[in-house]
Computed example of a mutant assay.
Amino acid sequence: MTAAEVLRYAAFSADPDGGNPAGVVLDAAGLDDGAMLGIAAALGYSETAFLTAPTAAAPPAGAVAEAGRGFTVRYFSPKAEVPFCGHATVAAAVALAERTGAGELVFETRAGTVPVSVTAVEGRLRATLTSVVPHVEEIGAADLAEALAALDWPAADLDPAFPPRIAYAGARHLVLGAGRRARLADLAYDFARLETLMRRLDLTTVQLVHRAGPALFHVRDPFPVGGVVEDPATGAAAAAFGAYARELGLVPADAVLTLHQGEDLGRPGVLTVELRAGDPRVRVSGEGVRIP
């Protein structure tokens, strides 16, 4: 394999036509920032993961020690580098497991250390990433009004049970709750206007959420800052949403949430979000498969 060989995987689906496609470069040694951005732009997926390996994978001081094979990972959208990407993490972990077997991995990202566990069940590979320590913050009234204007969402369409917040679990996402599934399905927004706001607030996506059951959610993620209209299945936003839902008391401290994403794009995917009482980090799981 050459340093620039680009693999293509679908994350959060066992179907190559489902989930979120990601590029994976398993040996990015020798590629500079311009080369990586060029590869990501040419591929056109929302993100491509670039690995260099192995590293010592030593956790930072005070972190929980994690055993596993270590890699430094950088993520590029077609427009810019992002600090962390969940679906490209799942894709890269599955790609590695196909070559060296299931097991424990440690990804050193710009956002921090991300342990990843890969398991094989009936010939299908499933990866679980553990986020960095998350946090949730308020959004100003004027910024919220601008976000709604860019989305063309009346404030009355928001679900009052889901207060708007900015949530972080490796990247920043604005979380907005839709009161109706139809509101979520009807997504047509002002690309340039939303991009401008997101750049000012340092947002990676806007996580639009509709609750379909106690632990069941439908989500969509506009991603204009990455150069694409929408991300089909977004692991980083899923982790941020898990932190948000727990902090606001919308789910129990111990919970397993199921997020359906991509249905409105014709690329259905399923993300599993696990919360554990006493552990602030969020675990996000999903299957992955190579795209022929």
Results as ranks from 00 to 15, higher is better:
residue 252 P to Q: 10
residue 232 P to D: 11
residue 131 S to H: 09
residue 181 R to W: 05
residue 226 G to H: 03
residue 183 R to H: 14
residue 282 V to S: 03
residue 285 S to L: 07
residue 273 V to L: 03
residue 193 R to H: 10
residue 285 S to Q: 05
residue 161 A to L: 13
residue 14 A to I: 07
residue 188 A to K: 10
residue 70 G to L: 11
residue 179 G to F: 11
residue 23 G to I: 01
residue 78 P to L: 05
residue 86 G to T: 03
residue 112 G to W: 09
residue 82 V to E: 01
residue 218 H to C: 10
residue 161 A to C: 00
residue 152 D to T: 13
residue 248 L to F: 09
residue 69 R to F: 13
residue 3 A to I: 04
residue 168 Y to M: 03
residue 57 A to F: 08
residue 123 G to V: 07
residue 166 I to S: 04
residue 212 A to Q: 11
residue 31 L to E: 02
residue 226 G to W: 04
residue 94 V to K: 09
residue 191 F to K: 04
residue 195 E to P: 01
residue 168 Y to N: 12
residue 44 G to S: 06
residue 193 R to V: 02
residue 239 A to H: 06
residue 215 A to C: 05
residue 292 P to G: 15
residue 210 H to S: 07
residue 88 A to I: 02
residue 7 L to Q: 14
residue 238 A to H: 05
residue 210 H to Y: 08
residue 226 G to I: 01
residue 50 F to R: 01
residue 94 V to D: 11
residue 275 L to P: 04
residue 52 T to P: 02
residue 73 V to S: 07
residue 60 P to C: 07
residue 116 V to C: 12
residue 187 L to Q: 07
residue 258 T to A: 10
residue 292 P to W: 03
residue 111 A to Q: 04
residue 131 S to K: 08
residue 218 H to L: 14
residue 69 R to P: 00
residue 53 A to D: 07
residue 242 G to I: 04
residue 66 E to Q: 14
residue 99 R to T: 14
residue 186 D to T: 14
residue 205 T to I: 02
residue 162 F to H: 13
residue 177 G to P: 04
residue 79 K to V: 13
residue 214 P to L: 09
residue 15 D to M: 08
residue 121 V to D: 15
residue 138 E to G: 11
residue 260 H to K: 08
residue 275 L to Y: 06
residue 46 S to E: 07
residue 179 G to Q: 13
residue 97 A to S: 13
residue 10 A to M: 01
residue 236 A to I: 01
residue 46 S to K: 06
residue 65 A to G: 12
residue 246 R to W: 06
residue 92 A to E: 03
residue 104 E to Y: 00
residue 193 R to Q: 14
residue 22 A to Y: 00
residue 281 R to A: 10
residue 56 A to G: 15
residue 242 G to K: 03
residue 4 A to M: 07
residue 5 E to G: 00
residue 209 V to M: 07
residue 247 E to M: 11
residue 80 A to F: 00
residue 149 A to S: 14
residue 81 E to Y: 05
